[in-house]
């Protein structure tokens, strides 16, 4: 029995914990994802993103806690969960010695797509990935962007309810990266699918309906991109005037806002920068030479919450955690 409430939740995670010996990769996280939305899982390397995906995909058993996809328990009903999901891993999982069409057919057989449907779905996927002209070329001759598109299209062949994308744009050039995003944002509508994606690129997470920010195995904030940006407190305005000192004093006096000087510019943080700028220019006596405004990015959010940049590194320590997990698994998987 699926209760009415559950119908509105595609992925539900409660108090999930995963330990690898002494290392706690995922430390009691909970979240829920609504159907046909894009959910972003954001954090630096080694934050626990891939471990969480592996548990949701039934590749890893959790140490404690629960995870459900489409109402199925990820630990106990792995077959039902696997039929409900498609996955694009961080590293390519295509067979490079097969053609694009063969890779798709392999998938269709593996997921028992009906014989009458099989060829049509493969053709649709090739068209959708814009690869129908290269359908019979070996995948090893494809560019990074083409391979990713093929993998996304392959992940959708069995009509999954949830598509996991683990760092889908990693290693792509800016051009293919923006093409891929354009392609991904069309998915929920065109394929009735819920997207669960991880990334450590802040600007990419802006396409998400909701985001959870994860650091050291814990969710430190979640909400819509807009809500998260509010944590930072609004836009930042940078002004250059004929006399910065005088102008800064005037701003403090007239607007009751903190204005500081840095590198020949005055900067101030306000909730709605666009409406404040005209007033600023009108009210202050000094002649304004230049104005620029910056909207807060999710990187500012991460900076505010953790006191560190998401990309600067943290990567070093993140890679340490990854290595520890890997070597632990090497020793213990073998029994």
């Amino acid at each position: 029995m699926i209760s009415g409430k559950l119908l509105h939740i595609m992925i539900r995670v409660e108090n999930l914990v995963k330990r690898f010996g002494p290392v706690t990769a995922v430390d009691g996280i909970s979240f829920a994802v609504a159907p046909k939305t894009i959910f972003g899982f954001l954090g630096p390397n080694g934050a626990g993103k891939t471990t969480t995906i592996s548990i949701l995909c039934t590749l890893l058993a959790p140490t404690s806690g629960e995870a459900f996809i489409n109402g199925h328990d990820c630990a106990a009903e792995s077959a039902a969960v696997r039929r409900s999901i498609g996955i694009v891993f961080q590293d390519s999982s295509l067979d490079k010695d097969l053609t694009a069409r063969e890779n798709l057919l392999f998938h269709a057989y593996l997921y028992r797509v009906d014989a009458s449907e099989r060829n049509r779905r493969v053709e649709d996927a090739l068209k959708f990935a814009d690869l129908h002209e290269r359908a019979d070329d070996l995948v090893k001759r494809f560019s990074g962007g083409m391979k990713r598109r093929l993998e996304v299209a392959r992940g959708l062949i069995h009509r999954p309810k949830v598509l996991f994308l683990d760092e889908p744009t990693l290693g792509l050039d800016p051009q293919s990266r923006s093409n891929l995003w354009e392609f991904i944002t069309r998915l929920p509508k065109e394929h009735d699918v819920t997207i669960f994606m991880t990334t450590h690129y802040m600007e990419e997470a802006e396409v998400c309906s909701r985001i959870a920010i994860i650091d050291k195995g814990r969710i430190i904030a979640s909400g819509t991109p807009g809500e998260l940006k509010k944590i930072v407190g609004g836009d930042v305005i940078y002004l250059r005037t004929e006399d910065n000192k005088k102008a800064a004093e005037e701003i403090r006096r007239l607007f009751q806002i903190e204005a500081a000087e840095k590198e020949g510019e005055i900067f101030l943080s306000v909730p709605r920068g666009d409406s404040v700028i005209p007033e600023l220019i009108r009210e202050i006596g000094e002649r304004v030479l230049s104005v620029r405004m910056q909207r807060p990015t999710l990187n500012d959010v991460f900076l505010k919450l953790t006191g560190k940049e998401i990309r600067e590194e943290t990567a070093a320590s993140g890679d340490d955690i990854k290595e520890a997990v890997r070597s632990y698994r090497r020793r213990h998987d073998r029994g």
Binding site: C57, R82, D91, S93
Partner: peptide, 10 residues
Amino acid sequence: GFMKEILVAP
């Protein structure tokens, strides 16, 4: 990486 494609299949 291809093994992952096989291992996550139902």
